[in-house]
Design a protein around this nucleic acid. Structure first.
Lengths: 172, 172
DNA sequence: CCCACTCCTGCGAAATCCGCAAGCAGAGGC
DNA sequence: GCCTCTGCTTGCGGATTTCGCAGGAGTGGG
């Protein structure tokens, strides 16, 4: 991932956020510290986290549970797609006519779209696509993405090599 | 995140992969199933995973440990950057003259660059940048990214709204 | 003042983690 | 055939962690 919006409930497999994100209280320093701990190791025990942030084990547990319930945070395994059998990835910039959000929703519904963001600039949308092989990628981009009503044009950037990927916000 | 390369050791805070990714054995079906379980819930107990994938608790424990050690998988907390105080994000497409990989390495060294990928197409690199505010973003893009030797030109796509973000490869 | 609400602490009971040992089965080298 | 290596299983305890619940402290409303 990237940075990004997070599923509103951890049980929910997909996540297309409807609500604005600015509606929640800004998150206090202690919760930030807890998140940092879990960004280093998602399985770190609550007691250890408590020791690090100055809270009891039970308090940490309650905070973590709330952060998960609120969808502020998810604890998940992340992998390198290449080692898991997805050999072709691409970032696709999309030019839209009409309702950009509607197009974004349509793209979000596709399994192959891992990441959908509305942007300012010469593209209205940027979409990351993860596929098994070239045929699959071609089918998704030329067959399905371009077929979405409102998509005026697309430009693809096929991934050659992933150089960096982190999850460390808050840690700086 | 996105899809992406993963740190070669879970202890390592940053990750700029040097090794090719195709060098590892392709990962068997059972490991895939374990990863799927942990993508749903990074804290799921080993016994529960074992029940789901048809392995003993001890075997799951060994497999997970190996996957972590090998850097195939990481278990981490992921958040919505907006709720954690990073209000400006952008995808930046970069045109490079000379050694693309060297530029990628230089960008990877910056904390604000969350995601760096070499691409084919009208950009040589795509970089995701996470910042606190507009001033910070401006400073990073115009001050630091453009200053990297070999960067010929950049094009920025400021994030307006994140619509989707998942971590579910293998789950399809 | 009292009530409701939130957040924390402390404490047992239950579950999980973790290391270890012994045994078994399949793959490969020779 | 024999040996080794790898990986899984079963079983076992002890240390650790999780989890639910009772209780206290602080805040704000009526």
């Amino acid at each position: 991932m990237h940075s990004g919006t997070v599923a509103s409930r951890s049980a929910d497999p997909k996540d297309s956020r409807e609500s604005r994100n600015g509606d929640r209280p800004p998150l206090d320093a202690v919760s930030l510290a807890i998140i940092e701990q879990l960004q280093e190791d998602g399985r770190r025990p609550y007691a250890a986290i408590g020791k690090a942030v100055g809270l009891s084990e039970a308090a940490v547990r309650q905070r973590v549970q709330k952060l998960l319930d609120q969808g502020v945070m998810q604890i998940v395994a992340v992998t390198d797609p290449l080692t898991v059998g997805f050999r072709r990835q691409a970032m696709v910039g999309i030019d839209v006519e009409g309702d950009v959000e509607a197009v974004a929703d349509a793209l979000s519904a596709m399994d192959e779209c891992e990441y959908v963001v509305m942007t300012a600039g010469s593209f209205d949308l940027m979409v990351e696509i993860v596929c098994e092989d070239d045929d699959h990628l071609l089918e998704v981009i030329n067959g399905r993405v371009r077929a979405v009503p409102g998509v005026r044009s697309t430009e693809s950037f096929v991934y050659l090599k992933l150089k960096k990927q982190t999850y460390m916000w808050g840690t700086r």
